[in-house]
Nucleic acid binder design. Structure first.
Length: 865
RNA sequence: GGGCGUUUAGCUCAGCGGGAGAGCACUCGGUUUACACCCGAGCGGUCACUGGUUCGAUCCCAGUAACGCCCACCA
């Protein structure tokens, strides 16, 4: 398919582009030739980025496809511009997700539960699962064309990365930035593990607000709660110290219903007297606020649920799930006449596990935390002082809001798959953190928990480069040039890379620019989700339309920071564009276009014009790439290729190919396509590579040079000529169309007022035949450019259609005339507006008046009906 | 409860102080030797609403409405 030698036949392309024929072989060739392998010793300026590591459990979705298309475009262009490019691929180990999948895998394959395995056995099985089912996305990335450096692929649980995790933990621990404490944390009863704050999603949903009378007679007080079941763990009722209603009760004990316990009424500033009854039940072990109150008042903190949120408090409710217990307890209270009020539904926010959607249970437990205050300050400052730039900068506010209000990060997870916390306990209960090269004393046992997956992800920009060792990769590629990721992951990942990158790398930022893209939504703008059933598999689209079409359609919608809708029609449109390019190149090959030899000194009008335009496009695309405006890059190149190169340049070139300047045009045609394919290659690498190697016989676009603008090729005169041709031809075509003339039919006609540089093209593109001996024009068109065309339409023209056309044009011109005349009559305008603006208005008025005169003359000249 | 964003052609979105744009959809016409995954022509918008600033507002400011997102330990 793709010629590698100049003597290979070059014009044997089929009339339609078939992506499946070229994509696989091209990708394999690129990888075999090591085009994507970075070389820190190359002497070229480095350009580096790391892939946001997808979960080892994941497969490619449209969000990945968008993100990776952006990164691939960035890296391919950088490579063409002469950089030593590192785009580092890899995956993260997805602690909780893999734990769950392996549990299911073991249930299915061996019929056993996790409890029937030792920790070591389970981890072995997890690796086995990873080998068999993990990493599907890597093959899918090849399909998409990602030019990643496979020789540097990393996994967050690799030996090297694990060592990095261990090392930084030890360092943070020694700096007192990691500590262990008993706190109320977010607990998922299904995954039976602690979660960090951001792994909890709050959703407004209907619940119930039940008001319960505690105590009896004078010593009674009503509390309201959405969580009646926690009353079993109540150890106080709190009121505001200044609340006059309850002064007499402060310090008094009231009977806790359904139990035989008595609990004190205490005064605490935290209570809002205006909410409900102004009295609050206090369950220190099951609510974060109550925990704080409990600490202040030294209250007992009984735990009444186990790790699966099943009631453990002795009594009739023991063994019930928390939600069953809620119903049962409310019923029992009602029976005792203690329910004062019930509001149902009661709308309130409930936290859910971001992993499995189970309602999160606040749980009192001993966990490990990162003390974030100093780290967060540094992370905020790095953006504040411009060392890290966010694109779009409108995301700055969101970043600061988060990083400036960060709370300590709970990093321990009660799981087996992951990095085990490197802290050991002596038989006497002492604890110590040992580094990767240290051996704990015999008899000591290691902490059971593993670290939050995001802990290792936070190290990704430097752990993947060999840190903590002083490697050539680390020296060359850190800080990375740019990070591309979704704004939805700013807090999860970007902020944490900032925390740890600045800490581990002595204040050096992990990346200089962060490009944030939006979410890919369905055609109706709805978020894709399994429950909605609107998830689209990009692989299916790649099969149907090719990888380039999927990439281009995503990039066409990629405005920085904004969500985008996708739709199969747009993929089809992108496929059509690839086919258009294919055929344009086919035409060039069939026409003998060449890339050899110097460009003609002074080409014909169209040749000079298109080179001039090419120049402007290069400059524009370069500018847009610096701003990561992918949608605009795609739009610019799409319209240049289709509207200018195909619709005008190629059509004009056809006129000169067989003439005296044919060789010059063949050279320019080759140059235009050569350059266009280079410019498009980062976005649509496959079709451009196939075409470019056929056209030029070159080795590969992957290692070809990025085009440069040549100011000396700007040619205003040629540009003006082509603009005239375009305007006159378009107007002439409109006239023909209005007159119902078959587009293919040649009509005898005479052109005046155009000049020798433009008249032949106008005649050809308007399909004007030679005016023969008996030439008798039946219609005359004077265009806005002052060029007049006399047509012999062989019969009467449609006067009604022509009158309608002119009337419409007249209305436009008249409005233009009156608007601009009005402005000029306004002294406030002429006095205050900048002279350039006023001059422009004068010009427009003059043009409108000329246009009116022309139209009126044309109307006058029309035969009466 | 705080904060942010969006509202422009039927749909998805650009534009953001001086002439309303694109893709798709739609209408009409086409066997124009690169391409029907095509070519040519066309239709389509009080730029959410109200007020303000300005010589001039889709664009700036204020307010309103609708939708969306993020953050949040008031039971």
């Amino acid at each position: 398919m793709t010629a590698q030698h100049p003597d290979t036949p070059r014009a044997d392309l089929p009339t339609q582009y078939r992506p499946a024929d070229v994509e696989g072989p091209l990708y394999e060739r690129w990888v075999e030739r090591n085009y994507f392998t970075a070389d820190p010793g190359s002497g070229k300026p480095p350009f580096s980025l790391v892939i946001p590591p997808p979960n080892v459990t994941g497969s490619l979705h449209l969000g990945h496809a968008l993100e990776q298309s952006m990164m691939d475009s960035i890296t391919r262009r950088a490579r063409m511009r002469g950089h030593d490019v590192l785009w580092l691929p890899g995956m993260d180990h997805a602690s909780i997700a893999v734990n769950n999948l392996v549990e299911r895998y073991l249930a299915e394959t061996e019929g056993k539960s996790r409890a029937e395995y030792t920790r070591e056995e389970f981890i072995d099985k997890a690796w086995e699962w990873k080998r068999r089912y993990g990493g599907q996305i890597l093959g899918q990335m090849r399909r998409l064309g990602d030019g990643v450096d496979w020789t540097r692929e990393r996994f967050t649980m690799d030996d090297g990365l694990s060592r990095a995790v261990h090392t930084i933990f030890k360092r943070l621990y020694d700096d007192d930035l990691i500590y262990r404490a008993e706190r109320i944390i977010n607990w998922c009863p299904r995954d039976t593990t602690a979660l960090s704050d951001i792994e909890v999603e709050h959703e407004e949903e209907p619940g119930e607000l039940v008001s319960i009378r505690y105590g009896d007679g004078d010593n009674s007080i009503v509390v309201a709660t959405t969580r009646a079941e926690t009353m079993l763990g109540d150890t106080a009722v709190a009121v505001h110290p200044d609340d006059e209603r309850y002064q007499h009760l402060i310090g008094v004990e009231v009977a806790l219903p359904l139990t035989n316990r008595r609990i004190p009424v205490i005064a605490d500033e935290h209570v809002d007297p205006s909410f409900g009854t102004g009295a609050v039940k206090v369950t220190p072990a099951h609510d974060p606020n109550d925990f704080e109150i409990g600490r202040r008042h030294d209250l007992p903190m009984p735990t009444i649920m186990d790790e699966r949120a099943v009631i453990t408090a002795p009594g009739p409710f023991q063994g019930l799930d928390r939600l069953e217990a809620r119903t049962a307890i409310v019923a029992a209270l009602r029976e005792e006449g203690r329910i004062v009020a019930e509001k149902r539904p009661y709308q309130h926010a409930v936290g859910h596990c971001s992993r499995c959607d189970t309602i999160v249970e606040p749980r009192l437990s001993l966990q490990w935390f990162v003390r974030v205050e100093s780290l967060a300050k540094a992370a905020g400052d790095a953006v504040r002082d411009g060392r890290v730039r966010l694109v779009p900068s409108s995301m700055d506010g969101r970043y600061f809001q988060w990083v400036d209000n960060l709370r300590d990060w709970c990093i321990s997870r009660q799981q087996w798959w992951g990095h085990r916390i490197p802290v050991w306990y002596s038989p006497d209960g002492d604890d110590a953190c040992f580094g990767p090269d240290e051996t704990p004393p015999p008899g000591w046992t290691q902490d059971d928990d593993v670290l939050d997956t995001w802990f290792s992800s936070a190290l990704w920009p430097f752990s993947t480069l060999g840190w903590p060792d002083d490697t050539a990769d680390l020296r060359t590629y850190y800080p990375t040039t740019v990070l591309v990721t979704g704004y939805d992951i700013l807090f999860f990942w970007v902020v944490r890379m900032m925390l740890f990158g600045l800490y581990a790398m002595d204040g050096e930022v992990p990346f200089q620019t962060v490009v944030l893209h939006g979410l890919v939504r369905d055609a109706a703008g709805k978020k894709m989700s399994k429950s909605r059933g609107n998830v689209i598999d990009p692989l299916l689209w790649m099969d149907e339309y090719g990888a380039d079409a999927v990439r281009l359609s995503l990039l066409q919608g990629a405005n920085p920071g904004a969500d985008q809708a996708v739709n199969e029609e747009w993929v089809k449109g992108a496929r059509n564009f690839c086919n258009k390019l294919w055929n344009a190149t086919r035409f060039a090959l069939l026409s003998g276009a060449t890339v050899d030899g110097p460009l003609p000194e002074a080409g014909t009008g169209p040749d000079a014009w298109i080179l001039s335009r090419l120049n402007a496009i290069i400059a524009e695309v370069d500018d847009l790439y610096e701003r990561y405006e992918f949608a605009k890059i795609a739009d610019t190149l799409y319209h240049f290729a289709w509207d200018e190169v195909c619709d005008w340049y190629i059509e004009l070139a056809k006129l000169s190919l067989s003439g005296p300047s044919g060789d010059a045009t063949r050279r320019v045609l080759g140059e235009v396509l050569d350059t266009l394919l280079r410019l498009l290659h980062p976005m649509i690498p496959f079709v451009t590579e196939a075409l470019w190697t056929s056209l030029t016989g070159g080795e590969s676009l992957v290692v070809a040079d990025w085009p440069e603008a040549h100011a000396e090729r700007d040619d205003p005169a040629a540009t003006a000529d082509i603009a005239l041709i375009q305007d006159v031809v378009t107007e002439g075509r409109r006239f023909r169309s209005d007159q119902g003339v078959n587009p293919a039919r040649s009509v005898p006609g005479a052109v005046s007022g155009a000049g020798p540089a433009t008249e032949p093209a106008i005649r050809a593109l308007l399909r004007l035949g030679e005016p023969g001996d008996g030439f008798a024009p039946t219609a005359e068109l004077t265009t806005a450019r002052g060029v007049t065309i006399a047509f012999d339409l062989s019969g009467t023209i449609d006067v009604g259609a022509e009158r309608a056309r002119l009337a419409k044009a007249r209305a436009v011109a008249e409005k233009e005339q009156s608007v601009n005349a009005g402005k000029l009559a306004n002294e406030a305008f002429t006095g205050k507006a900048p002279e350039a603006v006023v001059a422009k208005v004068r010009d427009r008025l003059a043009a409108a008046e000329a246009e009116l005169a022309r139209i009126d003359a044309a109307l006058e000249a029309l035969p009466s009906e």
